[in-house]
Design a protein around this nucleic acid. Sequence first.
DNA 1: CTGGCTTGTCAACAAGTGTTGGCCTACACT
DNA 2: AGTGTAGGCCAACACTTGTTGACAAGCCAG
Lengths: 202, 202
Amino acid sequence: MSESPRRSDATRATILDAARRRFAADGFRRATIRSIAADADIDPSMVMRYYGSKDGLFAAAVDVELDLPDLATADPGTVGELLTRQFLVLWEQPPTDEILLTLLRSAVADDAVVEKMRQVFAGQVTPAVLRFGDPADAPRRAGLVVSQLLGLALTRYVLRLPPVVALTSAEVVAEVGPTVQRYLAGGTPMPSEPPGRVTSAG
Amino acid sequence: MSESPRRSDATRATILDAARRRFAADGFRRATIRSIAADADIDPSMVMRYYGSKDGLFAAAVDVELDLPDLATADPGTVGELLTRQFLVLWEQPPTDEILLTLLRSAVADDAVVEKMRQVFAGQVTPAVLRFGDPADAPRRAGLVVSQLLGLALTRYVLRLPPVVALTSAEVVAEVGPTVQRYLAGGTPMPSEPPGRVTSAG
DNA sequence: CTGGCTTGTCAACAAGTGTTGGCCTACACT
DNA sequence: AGTGTAGGCCAACACTTGTTGACAAGCCAG
């Protein structure tokens, strides 16, 4: 498969790198082929030649592997902190930091990217949670975990709310970790139809 | 103050209504003046005449008053659930539902809207939290609360992750309420230098 | 050196954008 | 009725976008 390394591989990589930065900084729609090409110091038409279209370039730019830790072998008591800490690493270290920022920024504006995020959720997050606790509950628990962690990413890396930015990594783990832990452990406080209890909501 | 009601007030309102819907559905950049005008069944130039520019229209469309409950007079034991429930109401009832969706969708793509969200945070959320617990800690606690609640909105109303969408309002309150409660109560579980406790995090 | 293929450049297209000015219509006031 | 003014529509501008095709330069095999 790894055929003769083309002479243009360097250009390809340069384009992809510039694209990741631009997409992360501006989101899908604001980032233009022309601006990406300018950053990479090449002609816009080259982007088209190597990636077919802007969509093709984007797809190549956001191909991500989260490499979540194996929750099955983790200490059940601190798995929430473990996952939170790993999440911070993903968002603060290359190359995933720019990719995730790109996904989040663009997902909120483009339906196609929303689908991509659902795939990441279903294909990488839920399976990780599946290896911990009751499998029947896994999607629900994964959803709750993601609601907290993506909210953290949103306020810390996109909206950059000062108090959230000010938190150190250790503080984030100490504050948010227990929340993730509780969601992962999954008390299922009150299903849809409790047998004999009173439902306070209609 | 309330001068003679212009004949065009109805048109103005129609435009604003269509704009809110379009902005909420498509975000700032995708929503075009032309599409909004088409929805309102009027000419695009009318939008310009009444709102000056697309930015002016947007500013008018996202003017929002959250009307958060007074946490000072609330039951301190269930304030987390109260705030979570109120948050759900905001996101599921007109007219705030479309406005908030618009803000969230657009904030992630436009820096100007990010600033607007910071203003809402600093001007409406933090003051509400300020009326509960230690004032010195308020921004930090408000940030954590918002990280959870905006993450909930993101996964439930924007990304529409199936397990999160499937939750009933009561279930959301039951699951997320305690998290908000814990953040609001603000144990400051473990600053930088814990006195004598064992820290499992490095 | 001479072909053929890759790599790169230039200019242009078609579509869609926000925005503007001119013109027609219809109401309100005298 | 006549007239001034506000409400509304049409066509066009200037600009940016993704995308395409023609054409020059550079490398490699013969």
